[in-house]
């Protein structure tokens, strides 16, 4: 592949592709553990002791028998199961860590969004594969929800791109030198975090895995399959939090402490806010949420993009 970023060094170009990829994957997994530990702590009320629970669950699922169902579409089921964590890790590739990304493309933001779209396909396949009612219903719900969230999420990413004058995530971080983007684009920030939670079918957006359909997409998963799906979702949420910190909260900018520490702190803050806020809400039913997304969020994010575009033209971000 031709060299994509001449001006900004990438992690891959400094450390070599394989070590850099391993480091980024490890960071992704750690972020995933962080997210699911925080989530467990709030849901079970265990507090700090929940920290090891994600590891315990992972271990347990590894020991568990994989579920076989009747007349499954095994090929597509397995493809979907493998794709969820892979796509989640790929979305980590454009998240700036210590000021650099694993690889830098001229369309990082679109890359991130494309991984979310691939997650759709993967989760739908997970719902389709086992040939079971609840599972497929979960898959359908995910698609309907995804369609409604795709546009607002895309517009919020575009807003960031407009302000930074670039789709490269390191450029976006650099463009927030004076002022964090969250100040001028709060709507985009909230929509980005909320939309990503919806794509990760988590918390109030967990209708695809809701208890009302016996776990939906996850209802027929056990053992490794379940682990892959849940881990992929946690990694994706972690990647989203890190991305939100980079795109809206100035990334690694901050006084006294080294940059990566700041980025980590901001990421943890986003995770904490997401879990704390999200778990205060009941499940938002898809048929209500979908209309809200189309009728309210799309115009709202467009308006946000307009405001930012006017600011950008007037030289506010220069």
């Amino acid at each position: 592949m031709p060299e994509l970023a001449a001006d900004v060094g990438t992690l891959a170009s400094t450390w070599g592709v394989l070590p850099a990829a391993l480091v980024v994957a490890a960071v992704g997994v750690l972020l995933g553990v962080l997210v699911s530990a925080a989530d467990r702590a709030v849901v079970t009320g265990q507090g700090v002791r929940a920290g090891v629970e994600p590891l315990r669950s992972g271990m347990q699922l590894l020991l568990e028998q994989r579920r076989r169902t009747l007349a499954p579409d095994r090929l597509l089921w397995r493809v979907g199961g493998a794709a969820v964590p892979v796509v989640a890790l790929l979305s980590m590739a454009v998240v700036p860590l210590a000021g650099r990304t694993l690889w830098s493309t001229s369309a990082d933001l679109v890359w991130f969004n494309a991984m979310e779209a691939l997650l759709w396909a993967a989760v739908w396949l997970m719902g389709w594969g086992p040939n079971a009612v609840h599972s497929l219903t979960g898959g359908y719900r995910f698609l309907a929800q995804g369609l409604a969230y795709e546009l607002p999420l895309m517009f919020s990413l575009i807003t960031v791109g407009v302000a930074a004058g670039s789709l490269r995530s390191t450029d976006v971080v650099a463009a927030q030198d004076g002022l964090w983007f969250v100040v001028t684009m709060p709507v985009a920030f909230v929509v980005f975090v909320g939309g990503a939670a919806a794509f990760a079918f988590w918390g109030p957006f967990a209708a695809p895995t809701g208890a009302d359909i016996a776990g939906g997409v996850t209802s027929e998963l056990s053992g490794l399959d379940r682990l892959l799906l849940l881990a992929g979702r946690a990694v994706f949420l972690g990647a989203t939090a890190a991305m939100a910190a980079a795109l809206f909260l100035g990334g690694d900018a901050g006084p006294w402490l080294p940059g990566p520490v700041w980025h980590l702190l901001k990421t943890v803050a986003v995770v904490a806010g997401l879990v704390w806020g999200g778990r205060r809400l009941p499940l938002l039913r898809p048929d209500r949420v979908v209309e809200l997304a189309w009728v309210v969020l799309v115009p709202l994010t467009l308006l946000q993009a307009l405001v930012v575009a006017v600011l950008a033209v007037s030289g506010f971000y220069a």
Partner: peptide
């Protein structure tokens, strides 16, 4: 509730 399920590991 597993309408149409296969029954567990019985495949």
């Amino acid at each position: 509730g597993h309408a149409g399920d296969d029954m567990g590991g019985h495949a």
